[in-house]
Deep mutational scan, measured.
Amino acid sequence: TQSIHIEKSDTAADTYGFSLSSVEEDGIRRLYVNSVKETGLASKKGLKAGDEILEINNRAADALNSSMLKDFLSQPSLGLLVRT
């Protein structure tokens, strides 16, 4: 696993530069990185398409609903625990 911390203040970007997809496997919801913008903040921090997001801001990914995800992604900083 890899811990990634991203700050939007690093650039004038209003997004982190990646998209997520939610997949249900064996009754457990998993979050995967769908795509990463080549010039985006997430790419600079090493996030890659296909990575599994285990935690966002110290909250287990399978416990997050879509409104919580939207809220986290609109925050000025983001902490991710990722399995590559």
Rank of each mutant, 00 (worst) to 15 (best):
1 T>M: 12
1 T>P: 02
1 T>L: 14
4 I>F: 08
4 I>Q: 07
4 I>H: 01
6 I>C: 06
6 I>W: 02
6 I>D: 00
6 I>H: 02
7 E>K: 11
7 E>V: 12
7 E>Y: 13
7 E>A: 12
7 E>N: 09
7 E>W: 08
8 K>F: 06
8 K>S: 07
8 K>Y: 00
8 K>W: 04
8 K>N: 06
9 S>Y: 06
10 D>W: 05
10 D>F: 04
10 D>A: 12
10 D>Y: 06
11 T>K: 11
11 T>D: 15
11 T>P: 13
11 T>M: 09
12 A>T: 14
12 A>D: 14
13 A>Q: 11
13 A>I: 07
13 A>S: 11
14 D>K: 07
14 D>M: 06
15 T>V: 07
15 T>K: 08
16 Y>A: 02
16 Y>Q: 05
16 Y>I: 02
16 Y>F: 13
16 Y>K: 00
17 G>I: 04
17 G>F: 02
17 G>D: 06
17 G>E: 04
19 S>C: 09
19 S>L: 05
19 S>E: 12
19 S>T: 11
19 S>H: 09
21 S>C: 09
21 S>Q: 15
22 S>G: 07
22 S>K: 08
22 S>Y: 15
23 V>E: 08
25 E>M: 08
26 D>W: 04
27 G>Y: 00
27 G>V: 01
28 I>F: 11
28 I>Q: 12
28 I>Y: 10
29 R>S: 09
29 R>E: 07
29 R>L: 08
29 R>K: 15
29 R>D: 05
30 R>T: 04
30 R>S: 03
30 R>V: 03
31 L>R: 02
31 L>S: 04
32 Y>C: 04
33 V>G: 02
33 V>T: 02
33 V>K: 02
34 N>D: 13
34 N>A: 13
34 N>M: 13
35 S>T: 11
35 S>E: 14
36 V>D: 06
36 V>I: 15
36 V>H: 09
37 K>Y: 13
37 K>H: 12
37 K>W: 10
38 E>A: 13
38 E>C: 06
38 E>L: 08
39 T>P: 10
39 T>Y: 15
41 L>P: 10
41 L>T: 05
41 L>Y: 08
42 A>E: 04
42 A>W: 00
43 S>F: 12
43 S>V: 11
44 K>D: 05
44 K>C: 04
44 K>L: 10
44 K>P: 05
44 K>T: 10
47 L>E: 02
48 K>N: 10
48 K>R: 12
48 K>W: 00
49 A>D: 10
49 A>T: 10
49 A>Y: 06
49 A>P: 14
49 A>F: 06
50 G>C: 02
50 G>M: 04
50 G>Y: 04
51 D>T: 06
51 D>R: 01
51 D>V: 05
51 D>C: 08
52 E>R: 02
53 I>H: 01
53 I>E: 01
53 I>L: 05
53 I>V: 09
53 I>A: 01
54 L>N: 02
54 L>E: 02
54 L>R: 03
54 L>D: 01
55 E>F: 06
55 E>N: 05
55 E>W: 03
55 E>R: 08
55 E>I: 00
56 I>A: 02
56 I>N: 04
56 I>S: 03
57 N>K: 03
57 N>L: 00
57 N>Y: 05
58 N>R: 06
58 N>S: 09
58 N>G: 15
59 R>T: 15
60 A>G: 10
60 A>K: 14
61 A>M: 07
61 A>R: 00
61 A>C: 08
61 A>V: 14
62 D>V: 09
62 D>I: 11
62 D>C: 11
63 A>E: 14
63 A>T: 14
63 A>R: 13
63 A>S: 15
63 A>G: 13
63 A>W: 03
64 L>F: 08
64 L>R: 00
64 L>M: 08
64 L>H: 00
65 N>T: 14
65 N>V: 02
65 N>H: 06
65 N>S: 12
65 N>I: 00
66 S>L: 06
66 S>F: 08
67 S>G: 09
67 S>N: 13
67 S>I: 15
68 M>H: 07
68 M>G: 06
68 M>D: 11
69 L>I: 12
69 L>A: 04
69 L>G: 00
69 L>R: 02
71 D>N: 14
71 D>W: 10
71 D>V: 09
71 D>Q: 11
72 F>Y: 14
73 L>E: 14
75 Q>Y: 08
75 Q>V: 05
75 Q>C: 09
75 Q>I: 03
75 Q>G: 15
76 P>S: 11
76 P>D: 15
77 S>T: 10
77 S>M: 04
77 S>G: 05
77 S>Y: 06
78 L>S: 05
78 L>E: 06
79 G>M: 13
79 G>T: 15
79 G>K: 15
80 L>I: 03
80 L>V: 04
81 L>C: 07
82 V>L: 03
83 R>L: 01
83 R>K: 11
